[in-house]
Amino acid sequence: MLIANKKHWKFLFIFIFPAFAVYTLFMLLPILNSMRYSLFSGDGLALNEFVGLDNYIKLFTEERYYSKFWNAFGNNIQFFIIVTLIQNILGFFMAVLLTRTFKGSRFMRKISFLPTTLSVLVVGFIFKLILQPYPGVFDSVLKAIGLGKFILPWLGDPNSALVIVAVAVSWQFFGESVMFYASGIDGIDDSIIEAAKIDGATIWHEIFYIILPSVLPIVSIVTILIFIGDFTQFDIIYAMTSTKGDPGYSTDIFGSLFYRTTFSSAERGGWGTGMGATVATMMFIVVAIGVAGFLAFFNRRKEALN
C-alpha cells in the first residue's frame, strides 16, 4: 500500500469519482430525497406544499392508513419468519447433507442453485399457475399420491395465501443459502472434523460444535440478506396475489403497500406521492433497525462462542 501524497490527489480523484458520483446520485441521494418528500403533500410527481410531519401523523392516527400499514408490517414479519425457517434452518441442514460425499452430490449442488437464477416474477407466475384449481396441476399431483384430501384453495384462502407466497420465495432462494452454507462448510479444515470423529463425535456433535460455530458469520449474512430482501419484496406479490395483496390484503407486505400507495390511483388504493414517500421512509427505518439488531445479535453470539 502506497502512502498517497499531493501529486496523487488528481489521480485518486479521477479514479474514485465516477463510481462515487453515480452511486451517490442514483442510489443514496434518491433515498434521502424520498425521505424529504415525506414532508410534503402531493399527488402527482409534483410536490405541493410543505406539511411537516403531517403525513406521519396521518399514517399513525387515521385508521384507513394505519390499518393497512400495520397489516403489511405484520404480514411482512410472518413472511420473513417463514422464509428464514425454510431458507436458513432447512437450508443449513441441506448444506450439511450436500457437503457429504456421495454419488451425485456434485450434480445436486449444481441444480440446487438453479431456481435462484430465475426471475422472482417468473417463479411467482409458475407457482400461481400450478396452484390454480383449474386445470389444477398441483392438485392432480396431490391426488395421484393419495393426498387429495389436503387440497386447499391455496392462494384464495387468507389463511394459506401468505404461507404459499413465502414458500414460493423460499423455493427460489433456498439454493442460494445452501450454496453459502456449503461453501462455509467446505472451508472448514478437514483435520478438525477427522479429529472429532476419532474422538467418537456423532453427526449432531459435529454439526453443533464444529460446523455451526464456523458458519455463524454466514448465518448472519444470510439472515440479514433475507431480512432486507423480504422487507422490500414486491415481485412475488405482484405475480401471485396482485399489488393489492389478495385475498383481502392478507398477502399485502411493505413492497406492495409502497407500490400501491405511491403509484396507484386513489380509487385503487393510492395515497398520493407524499404519503408514499412516508411509507418508504418507514420501511427504511424498519430495515435499518432490523439490520442493526441482527448485527448486534450475531456479534454477541460470536463473542459468546469465542
Partner: peptide
C-alpha cells in the same frame, strides 16, 4: 470512502424510486 460504498450492499434502492423517477424526468 470504502465504508461509504459498502453501505450500498444493505441499502434498498427501491425506497428511492420516487426521486429516481423525478430525476429521470
Amino acid at each position: 470512502i470504502y465504508g461509504y460504498f459498502i453501505i450500498g450492499l444493505i441499502v434498498p434502492i427501491k425506497l428511492g424510486t420516487i426521486d429516481i423517477m423525478k430525476t429521470m424526468l
